[in-house]
Lab assay of single mutants.
Amino acid sequence: EEERTFTNEEEARKAKKEAEKRGLRVTVTKDGTTWRVRIG
């Protein structure tokens, strides 16, 4: 499991799409101005 943080919503969405392409489970949460993308 890996967690990545982004300040840019577009980049967070891109990371989510890429992980889904690899067949991984992805959770995206917004924490104030930060987007957290949890993969795995």
Rank of each mutant, 00 (worst) to 15 (best):
E20V: 04
A15W: 15
E20M: 07
K14S: 10
R25P: 08
K17S: 12
E18P: 00
E9L: 11
V28K: 00
R13H: 14
D31L: 07
E18T: 06
E10F: 10
R4G: 05
G32Q: 04
R22C: 07
K30Y: 15
W35Y: 06
F6Y: 11
R4S: 07
T33S: 12
T29S: 07
K17P: 00
T33M: 10
K16V: 15
K21T: 09
E3F: 08
K21R: 11
R36H: 11
N8W: 03
K21Y: 07
F6D: 01
R25D: 06
E18F: 05
E18K: 04
A12N: 00
V28F: 05
A19I: 07
K14D: 09
R4V: 11
A19T: 02
L24N: 03
G32Y: 01
E1V: 14
E9Y: 15
G23R: 02
F6I: 01
K16C: 15
I39N: 01
K30H: 12
R25Q: 10
T7C: 13
G32W: 00
L24R: 05
T33N: 15
T33L: 12
E11L: 05
I39Y: 06
E11V: 02
I39V: 07
E18Q: 07
G32S: 03
E3V: 12
R22Q: 09
R4L: 15
R13D: 10
G40I: 15
V37K: 00
T33C: 15
K30M: 08
R25F: 11
A19K: 02
V26L: 02
E20L: 07
E20W: 04
T29N: 04
T7F: 10
R4D: 04
K16H: 08
E18A: 08
R36P: 11
G23Q: 02
F6R: 01
T33H: 13
D31E: 11
K17I: 14
E18R: 04
R36F: 13
G32R: 02
G40W: 15
E11N: 04
R22M: 10
E2W: 15
I39P: 02
W35H: 13
E20I: 07
V37E: 04
R25A: 08
I39T: 05
K16P: 01
E1C: 15
G40K: 10
A15D: 02
K16W: 13
T27M: 06
A15S: 04
T29C: 09
A15Q: 03
E3I: 14
V37L: 09
T33D: 15
T7S: 09
R36Q: 05
F6K: 01
R36M: 08
V26R: 00
T29F: 11
T5Q: 08
E2D: 09
G32H: 02
K17A: 14
V28Q: 00
V37D: 05
T5S: 08
L24F: 10
T29Q: 06
A15Y: 15
A15N: 03
R38S: 11
E9V: 07
R36T: 13
K14T: 10
N8F: 03
T7R: 07
T33F: 12
G23H: 05
T33W: 07
K14H: 10
V37Q: 00
E10Q: 10
E11S: 06
A19F: 11
F6H: 01
G23E: 01
N8G: 03
T7D: 13
R22N: 08
A12K: 01
G23M: 02
E18Y: 05
R22K: 10
E10S: 09
K16G: 13
A12Q: 01
D31G: 03
T27S: 09
G40V: 14
R38M: 11
R38N: 10
K16R: 08
T7W: 08
E9A: 08
E9H: 06
V26Y: 01
G32V: 02
A19N: 03
T33A: 12
K21Q: 11
E9G: 05
T5A: 07
K21N: 11
E11P: 01
V26F: 01
R36E: 04
E1I: 15
G32L: 02
N8M: 05
K16I: 15
D31I: 11
R36K: 13
K30Q: 12
V26T: 03
G40R: 10
A15F: 15
K14Y: 09
R13N: 13
E2K: 08
A12P: 01
R13I: 15
G32T: 02
K30S: 13
N8T: 13
R38I: 15
T27L: 07
T27H: 08
R36I: 15
K21L: 12
A15V: 08
E3W: 10
A15T: 04
E18G: 03
F6P: 01
T29V: 12
R25V: 11
G40T: 14
R22H: 09
K21I: 09
I39S: 03
V28M: 13
F6S: 01
N8R: 06
K21M: 14
V28I: 15
R36L: 13
E10G: 08
R38A: 10
E9N: 03
G23C: 06
E20D: 04
T5K: 05
R22A: 10
T33P: 15
L24V: 05
E11Q: 07
R38G: 04
K17D: 13
K17Q: 14
E2H: 12
K21F: 07
K30T: 15
E10A: 11
T7G: 08
E20F: 03
T29H: 08
E20S: 03
E20G: 02
V28D: 00
T29I: 13
T34R: 13
G23S: 02
T29L: 09
E2P: 06
T29G: 02
K16Y: 11
